[in-house]
Amino acid sequence: MDKDSQDVHQELNKLKTKIQEAREQISTMPGISMSPEQQQQQLQNVREQVRTKNKLLQKYRSLCMFDIPKA
């Protein structure tokens, strides 16, 4: 019985150590500082920014500033 109890304690200690390691690893995982919904919202915002800036660049590059009006 004592031997079993010691084994259980040992296993429990191992489990605690693993849980602690898992906590430390989770704290270093990227992208979990916000909820998935907030993250999706932010992703949409960034995509929208890229789209807008692409449009602006296309507009500037295709802009002909020397249109000569026909008399």
Partner: peptide, 28 residues
Amino acid sequence: AQEQGKVHQEMQLLEKEVEKRDSDIQQL
């Protein structure tokens, strides 16, 4: 968490894209 990590990576790529576009716009 893994899914969020992938999304985070995608966001970082998009943010880099935004920075590049910003520099292009400023140059222009």
